[in-house]
Computed example of a mutant assay.
Amino acid sequence: MGVPSRISVLLCIVLAALVALASAKVHVSEVAIRVASASGPKLTQTLKYPKQLDDIVAVEVDEQLSISALTKDDNGKGLDSRATFVTFVHAGSQLPTTLVLESPSGAAGLRKIDLTLGSKAIQETFKGQPGVYAVAISVGRFDQAGVVYPIGNVNLSFPADPEFFVKHSYGEHYGPLPEIHHVFRPDEKQPLPLISQVFALLSIAPWVLLLGAWSFLGANVRELFASVGHSVFGVAFIGTFVSWFTLFYFYWVRLNLFQFLGYGSVLAVATLIIGRQALVLRHNRRIAGNK
Score class of each variant (00 low, 15 high):
63 E>D: 15
56 I>Q: 14
66 S>H: 08
94 Q>A: 05
106 G>C: 01
87 T>G: 03
73 D>M: 02
60 E>S: 12
100 V>F: 00
95 L>Q: 13
49 Y>R: 08
64 Q>W: 01
53 L>P: 06
71 T>R: 08
99 L>Y: 04
49 Y>P: 07
94 Q>S: 12
90 H>K: 02
104 P>S: 10
61 V>Y: 05
52 Q>D: 06
87 T>E: 14
73 D>H: 08
63 E>M: 09
100 V>A: 08
89 V>N: 08
76 G>N: 04
74 D>M: 00
70 L>P: 00
87 T>N: 05
83 A>S: 14
62 D>S: 15
77 K>G: 01
50 P>Y: 00
88 F>V: 06
74 D>T: 00
97 T>I: 09
53 L>S: 13
105 S>D: 15
57 V>S: 03
73 D>S: 06
107 A>T: 10
103 S>N: 14
54 D>P: 04
88 F>G: 04
107 A>W: 06
100 V>E: 09
50 P>A: 12
83 A>E: 07
87 T>V: 13
90 H>Q: 07
85 F>M: 09
81 S>Y: 08
82 R>C: 02
84 T>A: 12
107 A>N: 14
79 L>C: 05
67 I>R: 02
105 S>T: 02
101 L>R: 01
74 D>F: 02
84 T>G: 14
106 G>F: 10
87 T>A: 09
91 A>P: 02
85 F>A: 11
90 H>I: 11
65 L>W: 01
97 T>W: 10
102 E>C: 04
65 L>H: 01
92 G>W: 07
66 S>F: 01
94 Q>W: 00
80 D>S: 15
100 V>R: 13
91 A>V: 06
58 A>S: 05
52 Q>F: 07
86 V>R: 03
103 S>F: 08
60 E>L: 08
106 G>N: 07
89 V>K: 06
64 Q>E: 14
81 S>F: 01
95 L>K: 15
94 Q>T: 11
72 K>I: 15
92 G>L: 14
97 T>Y: 13
104 P>V: 05
59 V>F: 07
90 H>A: 04
101 L>T: 03
95 L>D: 10
64 Q>D: 14
105 S>V: 04
65 L>G: 05
82 R>M: 13
50 P>R: 06
70 L>T: 04
87 T>I: 12
59 V>S: 04
92 G>K: 14
79 L>F: 01
50 P>G: 15
76 G>K: 12
62 D>H: 13
70 L>S: 05
72 K>D: 06
66 S>Y: 04
52 Q>N: 13
72 K>M: 13
57 V>Q: 03
98 T>G: 02
107 A>E: 13
55 D>G: 03
52 Q>Y: 12
50 P>F: 03
99 L>F: 05
64 Q>S: 14
94 Q>V: 00
74 D>V: 00
95 L>T: 08
62 D>M: 11
82 R>I: 09
68 S>P: 07
96 P>F: 11
68 S>C: 04
71 T>H: 09
105 S>F: 07
88 F>E: 10
83 A>T: 15
76 G>D: 06
86 V>G: 01
67 I>T: 02
79 L>M: 13
86 V>H: 05
50 P>E: 06
94 Q>Y: 00
91 A>N: 11
97 T>V: 15
